[in-house]
Nucleic acid binder design. Structure first.
Length: 340
DNA sequence: CATCCGTGGTA
DNA sequence: TTACCAAGGAT
């Protein structure tokens, strides 16, 4: 962060708006607490920022509450069993975040005496903390004037300065422009204000420019192209993969699940045994039984491909056991019933 | 640089 | 129904 090139007028406009319109969220400290000089808890800020990576506030709220109730401190989380954390994260997506969450908590306890590093560089060195999260935690929890750039900030800045070059190539230019806006005072509030603005007013489609505190200085608004920015380079189309999932039902209600390999797609999560996912999957039943295919397939779309799963069902006896190597790397789970 | 990695909401 | 989008990081 360099000093001397900020734009006080714009950041002041935004902070004044934030003081009136900041959204209330469980990981934020209220104005009253801050008036008494309290800083946000770095553990809660970090946890919320990791959960919020590519994930909406609405989806995160319940998960954040459950995590902080079950593991109130980073030391509590560091002492948790892997399977408990993965199970608590189930449904939130991007499961590498949960694996790195545990690694990070354990590194904070083992290498930093249970206290999060207070600098951007120190945070950046921890697992699962990249440029965005390091800057966000440094600014919000430690009052460091770090340059916080997420998807919201990219959008706000590209419009404010009418940057027409497409993402992702324009990212460095947008970061430089954001650096010029970032104030030395209240950098954490500024960062959250930019993100609140992007989430509620400077939205991807139909931005509410008439309500925007930065309407006056906004170049895209003046040029009538706010809704067209930021431009983005076209993305390749998603291919379709197919597969077979085997659901073995026991009379007592238990279902056969396996723990997936620790890395890769859905790594470390529980799942049904199944075939590979490819254009032409080979059948791979986990045990001998009278498998009956379900009439219609289950469709799901991941980040980069469509999946069409055919479900095969079978009732199995109480003492049924899959061969030790039913699946090359996955391992059978203890008998389980699904919660969701 | 590009690619891989979920899920739910929305137009 | 489809495509895009959301407080990204690791490799």
């Amino acid at each position: 962060m360099r000093d001397g090139i900020c734009e006080p007028a714009t950041s002041a406009l935004l902070l004044a708006w934030y003081d009136r319109h900041a959204r209330v969220m469980p990981w934020r400290t209220g104005p009253a607490e801050r008036a008494e000089g309290q800083r946000p808890d770095p553990y809660r800020v970090w946890l919320s920022e990791v959960m919020l990576q590519q994930t909406t506030v609405a989806a995160v709220r319940a998960y954040f509450r459950r995590f902080t109730e079950r593991w109130p401190t980073v030391a509590d989380l560091a002492a948790a069993a892997d399977a408990d954390v993965m199970a608590e994260w189930a449904g939130l997506g991007y499961y590498a975040r949960a694996r790195n969450l545990l690694k990070c908590a354990r590194a904070v306890v083992a290498d930093h005496g249970g206290q999060f590093p207070g600098t951007e560089a120190g945070l950046r060195a921890l697992p699962g903390i990249g440029p965005y999260t390091a800057a966000a935690v440094a600014a919000i929890a430690f009052d460091e004037p770090a340059v916080v750039v997420d998807g919201n900030v990219e959008r706000v800045v590209s419009r404010l300065f009418a940057v027409e070059a497409p993402l992702p190539a324009s990212k460095p230019a947008l970061v430089a422009l954001a650096a010029g806006l970032t104030p030395q005072q209240r950098p954490g509030d500024f960062a959250q204000a930019m993100m609140d603005l992007g989430a509620t007013i400077c939205t991807p489609r139909k931005p509410a420019c008439s309500l925007c505190p930065l309407c006056a200085p906004c170049a895209a608004r003046a040029a009538g192209i706010a809704a067209d920015l930021p431009r983005k380079s076209p993305k390749p189309a998603k291919p379709t993969r197919r597969g077979i999932a085997y659901v073995a039902l026991r009379a007592d209600g238990a279902v056969l699940l396996e723990t997936r390999p620790a890395r890769g797609l859905l790594g470390g999560m529980l799942g049904f045994p199944g075939s590979d996912w490819s254009p032409d999957p080979a059948p791979a039943p986990p045990l001998d039984a009278r498998w009956t295919p379900a009439p219609s397939a289950v469709r799901h779309t991941f980040t980069h491909f469509h999946l069409e799963l055919t479900v095969h069902l079978a009732a199995v006896p109480q003492d049924a056991a899959p061969p030790a190597a039913a699946s090359p790397r996955a391992r059978p789970s203890a008998p389980a019933t699904c919660r969701r």
